[in-house]
Simulated assay, not measured.
Amino acid sequence: MEPFEYVKPASPAEASAILAAEGSAARILQGGTDLIIRMRGDFVHPKIVVDLKGLPGIREVAYNPANGLTLGAAVTMNEVAAHPLIHAHYLMLAEACETIGSYQLRNRATIGGNVCNASPAGDSIPALLCYDATAVIYNPAGERRLPLMNFFKGPGKTDLQPGEFLLALTLPEPHEAAVGVYNKLGRTRVGDIALLGVGVLGWPQPANPSGSGWRIALASVGPTPLMAPEAAALLAENTDDEAVEAAAAAVMNASRPIDDVRASGAYRQAMVRVLARRAIEDVLARLPM
Results as ranks from 00 to 15, higher is better:
23 G>V: 10
162 P>T: 13
223 P>T: 06
157 K>T: 05
270 A>E: 15
5 E>S: 11
89 H>N: 10
67 N>H: 06
200 V>Q: 04
242 E>A: 15
256 R>Y: 10
173 E>S: 13
239 T>C: 15
146 L>W: 07
246 A>N: 12
177 A>C: 06
93 L>E: 04
197 G>E: 05
52 L>S: 08
34 D>C: 08
83 H>C: 06
95 E>D: 14
243 A>T: 03
102 S>M: 12
34 D>L: 13
211 G>Q: 05
244 V>I: 15
12 P>M: 14
97 C>A: 14
95 E>I: 04
139 N>F: 04
169 L>V: 12
123 D>F: 05
191 G>A: 00
91 L>V: 03
146 L>M: 12
263 A>Q: 10
7 V>I: 15
169 L>G: 07
275 L>W: 06
70 T>D: 04
140 P>D: 00
159 D>C: 10
182 Y>K: 05
24 S>C: 01
249 A>L: 14
119 S>P: 00
35 L>I: 08
116 C>L: 04
105 L>Y: 02
32 G>A: 08
170 T>E: 15
282 D>F: 01
157 K>Q: 15
130 C>H: 09
50 V>P: 02
254 A>K: 08
147 P>N: 02
212 S>Y: 01
175 H>C: 06
143 E>V: 02
23 G>S: 09
46 P>G: 02
78 N>G: 02
31 G>A: 13
172 P>M: 08
196 L>I: 08
185 L>F: 12
100 I>H: 03
230 E>L: 12
58 I>E: 05
197 G>C: 09
96 A>P: 10
194 A>G: 09
130 C>W: 09
62 A>D: 09
282 D>H: 11
47 K>G: 15
137 I>D: 04
285 A>I: 00
165 F>C: 12
80 V>Y: 04
44 V>H: 06
133 A>R: 08
203 W>F: 12
178 A>P: 00
227 M>F: 05
220 S>V: 01
137 I>V: 13
47 K>C: 11
204 P>A: 03
179 V>E: 13
232 A>Y: 08
87 H>D: 05
134 T>W: 06
14 E>K: 10
